[in-house]
């Protein structure tokens, strides 16, 4: 079905930079879709139909990935060999340990309270403020991620040691981000 995985950046003729002009990306996506979409090959040979299916699906996968600022970083680190596929759930970042511990305790209490029925209101407001605090941290991580992405773009011509250092930083930020995001999602689920 496929020979080699194509570099998503290369599909759009882009360097491996994290800043992407979204309007231009969309325009290229539409132009390439027009050429590659299976609709063009309904009456073509089986090989051509397969080729079109493979390349248009790659194009769509690439566009989906690169359109998402976080997905883009994950993908870049993946092809640069700095991140394992499916690397998500990590240990709590050390500086968050205390807060996470408190949060989990409140969550447990909420679950208990839901079954026994007592003290829900106070617990909920405690969790809501915890959620707010983690949402804020998520915003901070996003900003740091953006700053590190700029660093990467500026270091495109630098030596491999520098680039590796930036990649490690990006990777840490991604893990931190996905950890906090999971926390927020869990809290939101319990608060529903």
């Amino acid at each position: 079905m496929q020979n080699q995985r194509t570099d998503y950046f290369a599909i759009f003729g882009l360097p491996r930079k994290l800043w992407i002009e979204m309007g231009a990306l969309e325009q290229k996506f539409l132009q390439l879709s027009w050429k590659l979409h299976p609709d063009n090959f309904v009456n073509a040979s089986e090989h051509e139909r397969e080729l079109s299916l493979r390349r248009s699906s790659e194009l769509n996968d690439a566009y989906r990935t690169l359109s998402d600022p976080v997905g883009r970083v994950e993908y870049l680190l993946g092809i640069e060999g700095a991140r394992k596929e499916g690397e998500h759930r990590q240990q709590a970042p050390p500086e968050l340990l205390e807060e996470v511990f408190e949060l989990n305790e409140s969550l447990d209490e909420l679950r208990d309270a839901k079954t026994s029925g007592g003290g829900l209101v106070a617990l909920k407001s405690r969790l809501e403020s915890a959620e707010k605090s983690f949402q804020q941290k998520l915003g901070e991580v996003d900003a740091q991620l953006q700053a590190a992405a700029c660093e990467w773009d500026d270091a495109l011509q630098s030596d491999s040691a520098t680039r590796k250092k930036i990649m490690a930083k990006l990777n840490d930020l991604l893990n931190r981000r996905s950890y906090i995001r999971n926390l927020v999602a869990n809290v939101q689920k319990e608060l529903l």
């Binding site: 759009f12 003729g13 325009q27 290229k28 132009q31 390439l32 027009w34 050429k35 590659l36 063009n40 073509a44 040979s45 089986e46 090989h47 051509e48 080729l51 079109s52 390349r55």
Partner: peptide, 30 residues
């Protein structure tokens, strides 16, 4: 057999379509 014989040709045409699209030029259908 014919499908097999034209595989390379099909790839050539598709690649050319892609490169013209990337250059932003509009060509007649390939």
């Amino acid at each position: 057999e014919l499908n097999h014989a034209t595989e390379h040709l099909a790839e050539l045409l598709m690649n050319s379509a892609v490169s013209t699209a990337l250059e932003g030029r509009k060509l007649a259908e390939v």
